[in-house]
Design a protein around this nucleic acid. Structure first.
Length: 1025
RNA sequence: GCGGAUGUGGCGGAAUUGGUAGACGCUCCAGACUUAGGAUCUGGUGCCGAAAGGCGUGGGGGUUCGAGUCCCUUCAUCCGCACCA
């Protein structure tokens, strides 16, 4: 019987769906195991072959664990709020819920095709009010909590109010931005507004006005992890710094726990390292410098190098600092104001670009060195960041490269206080060497000096030991429509939470998804966006990570309307044992979810402090992208002109300036200005400034240059017909045609940039031009440069993406080879964590294996046939060795080697013509996690009536995994010369004797007595001659 | 600049603890069956060499009876962070 995967897969797909075979419930007789995939964002493009990689890996493990008798929770859902759906809504006016629903449907179809063992009854969708009710609920809890550093735990805000009422805030050790100390009397006398403002400084979800990442193109604020190099990650739009009132989550309160928690989870080292860097813990000291002439005011700085304090040559504060107006002397006022204005206008990107070039301005004020009493100038410079430490630094040019660059620029003193470097050349930042010119710490090692200075600073009461974090509080509001509404309303401008009974606060309908004319977020367009008492509701929505932060808990109890998750469910399922997803979430989701979970743990909702015990990052499946090379018109025009001009004039100059090609022909006293259509006006302006001394000017639209075949004659004619001081414009209304060049024409590559083309247009690296023109009609008139008769394409292995036309659709592969083959092939390609290129050629190999496996169960007449004989030792050895190896491999997620073990087994059993039930049935079970369809079919053909997924994973018997004889590699002086089978029970002396007397050894012993013989039992013998 | 990872045949990749380097698959070559094959089966396939043998895990050095694996050094590629005081 033929292996008809189409029928087989269709049959079992339906059967599994009808019988709800993957539905799980709490079962106290079984141990739980929780396997989770990062849930997908349902984009309009559907899945490509890269997406299922992680799902296949987790599915295999889930099925394996199930066969081993675990109660496996393996759910899936959709992360459905987010920007792409909203952008699409803005363009089409269609409600994002509709497109989202459509996309989810498509995803579901594609996922079902691959035979995943998800429990769909637990599906959650983040944009479903039933789900986001609990996101809003958690936000209320965050708002009503503060973080007590004494017990390292979140506590209800009411308890804090109690403390204020009885003791004031002097002894409260909280994660807070509150700096003012007040007594209990003062607290009672504060009015409601003042009280709320103080509490806001303690809440874990709080409203604050600071500088944020504002993205004008997206019309929203972004979190730090959503910005890279001054551009938004989504869309790549520029991001500016803007002072705005925003919701924040006080994630910094948990910085230490987020750091130490990494020790107890089994995650890839690089992800942990990324998180450590992101949290960026550094130990140092806060030190106060008095300001000359101003009583009771200090500049407080943070430093990790207090050992260099005697090398301070200036103090530097951030332009945004509140101290600036206070300390700026009237004489410097204009300069300082000017500088601040300039640097505030700089975007984040601009501030980052010229890192080496430092800017700053002197304030006219001086600080007093706390140890020497010296006067130290105070500067303002934008290389000091307001958001880190205290927004002020003590600058030690000799031992900090940034201060060094600044000091060099402005001629400030550079004083060496640590010996060991060459400060004439560069800053010496090492912690090696010894302190010099440093009063009471002279001669100490820097590490000891740090301790000593901190002790001294604390003794004198001018500062404290301090741990600082790079981690910032997470900006939690987005000025967008498609997200969770905040359960917040405003009364007299003060935010209050809705009552829990009013949740979910559903997203209202709006007539447009754009901001209002006043720049308010889209929710401001909603009718009646007020509480029932008429108070206005918050118009921002929550960011993408809100819905994905606790979704794993909700899967445990997805339909509970009374709780996020019931005690019973969370006590049973606890946390995720195996979490599979991409590493791009290292500083986003994976850190927010840990924070969010720790908070829920503090308020006794989560059962474990860490949400994901083991994490695996699946690699990417890469695609081969093909491109042709397109020349930039200006560059190509220059190339063409350089070929023609020598024939016209022996005295000419070519310059490219502001997108205008300027050619001066000395002999003709003529300027040629060559421009694209849009720049004609600029060229005219330039021409007017050039027309003197009888010069003639010819302005030519670049298309003329690019398209003219007889360029030389054309130019000569035009130039010869010009009058003195004439400005002639040749501007025909033709669009600039794209120019395509072959990559391999020598010297051409510098003029080119690649353009992705569809794979179907390329055969053997040659572009089919006619097909290309049909594929991209706007290039119908493209001018292909015919210097070779073929257009050679470039190619590269890249991430799969629609825009690169290198996407492979899993549906196509399933149609051609079946889902089992696709699953097996993706796992066979290499280790799960590794990225690898998709290459269809190899898929034949695994498909062939499945057919071979299938044929093991059929006799010569092609009938299904298994015998019930007792298997022989050879057969048993194949089986048990395979089972052992496969089990070990699955447990270390090395699916590629497990599959090759199966291949070896099937090849061997085929050689033995084994049709033995006692051998082949256990093999079906062991293979079933990888290829659920074919194994289910064979299982039923073998006479079983229940699903194979309810079978028990076969144990191996150690005694059949050992051979009677061992193959020894016999080596002389470390080089293997021949192999020898020796009885496994032979002892060392016997082995030595066998080898030294073996005829093949004579040649290598050369009659000499061996100096030494090393025998490694069961493996190798090395004879040293 | 700092941090992390990875370098093995024509290709994807094996080698789990220092013990026969290249499992398994693709490709390619030869053959069988066949009207035919993009079906199936058999054999071969790291490089040099007719063979004996030699050389081989990015390069150089070291430890060891023995190194892809450990140590030092260097090069290349990829990723993350980047004025964090």
């Amino acid at each position: 019987m033929e292996y008809n995967f189409r029928e087989i897969e269709k049959k079992w797909r339906t059967y599994w769906k009808m019988s709800q075979i993957y539905k799980v419930d709490i079962d106290y007789d079984k141990q739980k195991y929780y396997v989770l995939d990062m849930f997908p964002y349902p984009s309009g493009a559907g899945l490509h072959v890269g997406h299922p990689l992680g799902y296949i890996a987790s599915d295999i493990y889930a099925r394996y664990k199930r066969l081993q008798g675990y109660n496996v929770l393996h759910p899936i859902g959709f992360d459905a709020f987010g920007l792409p759906a909203e952008q699409y809504a803005i363009q089409t006016g269609q409600h994002p819920a509709i497109t989202t629903k459509k996309n989810i449907h498509r995803y579901r179809e594609q996922l079902d095709l691959l035979g995943f063992s998800f429990d769909w009854s637990r599906e959650i969708i983040t944009c479903d009010p039933k789900y986001y009710k609990w996101t809003q609920w958690t936000f209320i809890k965050l708002f009503k909590s503060w973080y007590d550093k004494n017990i390292e735990k979140a506590r209800p805000i009411d308890e804090l109010i109690n403390i204020f009422e009885t003791n004031g805030n002097a002894n409260v050790n909280a994660a807070t931005t509150q700096t003012k100390i007040f007594t209990k009397e003062a607290w009672t006398n504060y009015n409601e507004k003042e009280k709320q403002e103080i509490l806001m400084n303690y809440r874990l979800a709080y409203l604050s006005e600071t500088f944020v990442n504002w993205c004008p193109a997206l019309g929203t604020v972004l979190a730090n992890d959503e910005v890279s190099d001054g551009f938004s990650i989504r869309g790549g739009y520029p991001v500016e710094r803007k002072k705005m009132k925003q919701w924040f989550l006080r994630i910094t309160a948990y910085a230490d726990r987020l750091l130490s928690g990494l020790e107890k989870i089994d995650w890839p080292e690089h992800i942990k390292e990324i998180q450590r860097n992101w949290i960026g813990r550094s130990e140092g000291a806060l030190i106060r410098f008095p300001i000359k002439g101003i009583q009771d005011k200090y500049i407080e700085i943070f430093t990790t190098r207090p050992d260099t304090i005697f090398g301070v040559s200036y103090i530097c504060i951030a332009p945004e600092s509140d101290l600036v107006p206070l300390i700026t002397k009237p004489s410097e006022n204009d300069k300082v104001k000017n500088y601040i204005k300039k640097s505030m206008n700089k975007s984040e990107r601009e501030r980052l670009t010229d890192i080496d070039e430092k800017t700053g301005v002197f304030t006219g004020s001086y600080a007093i060195h706390p140890f020497t009493g010296e006067e130290i100038p105070i500067w303002v410079a934008d290389y000091v960041l307001i958001s880190y430490g205290t927004g002020a630094v003590m600058a030690v040019p000799a031992h900090d490269s940034r201060d060094y660059a600044f000091a060099k620029q402005f001629g400030l003193p550079i004083k060496e206080v640590i010996k060991g470097g060459n400060i004439a050349k560069e800053a010496y930042e090492d912690l090696k060497g010894e302190c010099v010119n440093s009063d009471f710490i002279n001669g100490l090692k820097p590490s000891d000096a740090i301790k000593k200075i901190i002790e001294e600073v604390e003794k004198r009461g001018i500062g404290t030991r301090k741990v600082n974090y790079r981690l910032r509080d997470a900006i939690f509001s987005r000025q967008r429509y498609w997200g969770e509404p905040f359960p917040i309303y405003y009364k007299d401008g003060i935010p209050y939470t809705l009552d829990e009974s009013e949740l979910p606060l559903e997203l209202p309908l709006v007539d447009s998804y754009l901001p209002t004319e006043d720049g308010e977020p889209p929710l401001a367009r909603a009718k009646n966006w007020k509480t029932k008492d008429g108070y206005p509701l918050e118009t921002c929505t929550m960011p993408g990570f809100a819905g994905s932060s606790a979704y794993y808990l909700r899967y445990m109890d997805p339909n509970n309307d009374n709780e996020l998750v019931s005690k019973k469910a969370v006590e049973y399922w606890r946390n995720v044992d195996l979490y599979i997803g991409g590493s791009e979430h290292a500083t986003g989701h994976l850190i927010y979810a840990r924070f969010w979970n720790k908070f829920l743990y503090d308020i006794s909702v989560a059962a474990e402090d860490e949400p994901f015990f083991k994490l695996i990052n699946q690699g990417m499946i890469l695609g081969r992208s093909n491109f042709v090379y397109r020349a930039k018109p200006l560059d190509f025009a220059i190339y063409k002109l350089k070929n023609v001009l020598p024939a016209i004039s022996d005295n000419y100059e070519i310059n490219l300036q502001d997108d205008i090609i300027i050619i001066f022909l000395q002999n003709y006293k003529t300027y040629l200005l060559i421009v694209e259509k849009d720049d004609i006006d600029n060229a005219k302006a330039l021409a007017n400034s050039l027309v003197t001394n009888n010069y003639k000017i010819l302005i030519i639209n670049i298309t003329k240059i690019l398209l003219k075949d007889n360029l030389k004659e054309f130019l000569e004619n035009q130039i010869n017909n010009l009058q003195d001081k004439e400005i002639k414009i040749i501007d025909e209304d033709i669009d600039t045609p794209p120019i395509f060049v072959s990559k391999n024409i020598e010297g051409r590559e510098e003029y080119t940039y690649p353009m992705h083309v569809d794979i179907s247009l390329v055969r053997n690296d040659i572009l089919d031009i006619e097909a290309f023109k049909k594929w991209q009609p706007e290039f119908e008139h493209a001018h292909f440069i015919l210097e070779l008769d073929k257009y050679v394409c470039g190619w590269e292995i890249e991430k799969m993406s629609k825009s690169k036309y290198n996407v492979q659709n899993p549906d196509d592969v399933v149609g051609q080879y079946g889902a089992d083959t696709l699953r097996l092939y993706e796992m066979f390609l290499g280790p799960v964590e590794q990225s690898k290129p998709w290459d269809v050629a190899g898929i034949e190999g695994v498909h062939r294996f499945l057919r071979k496996f299938w044929r093991l169960f059929f006799d010569d007449k092609d009938d299904f046939y298994l015998n019930d004989n007792e298997p022989n030792r050879d057969e048993l050895q194949i089986l048990h060795k395979t089972l052992k190896k496969v089990q070990e491999d699955i447990e270390r997620y090395a699916y590629n080697t497990a599959i090759s073990t199966f291949m070896v087994a099937v090849n061997n059993l085929q050689d033995l013509k084994c049709n033995n039930r006692k051998i082949l049935e256990p093999l079906i079970i062991a293979l079933s996690p990888f290829v659920p369809f074919i194994t289910e079919e064979l299982w039923h053909l073998a006479g079983h009536t229940d699903s194979i997924h309810k079978a028990k994973f076969p144990d191996y018997d150690e005694k059949y995994t050992i051979d009677n004889t061992c193959t020894y590699a016999i080596s002389f002086n470390g080089k293997t010369r021949f192999t020898l089978d020796i009885d496994a029970s032979a002892d060392e002396e016997t082995i030595k004797e066998i080898i030294l007397t073996h005829p093949q050894s004579e040649k290598w012993l050369k009659g000499k007595n061996p100096k030494r013989v090393i025998v490694v039992k069961g493996k190798i013998v090395n004879v040293v001659v």
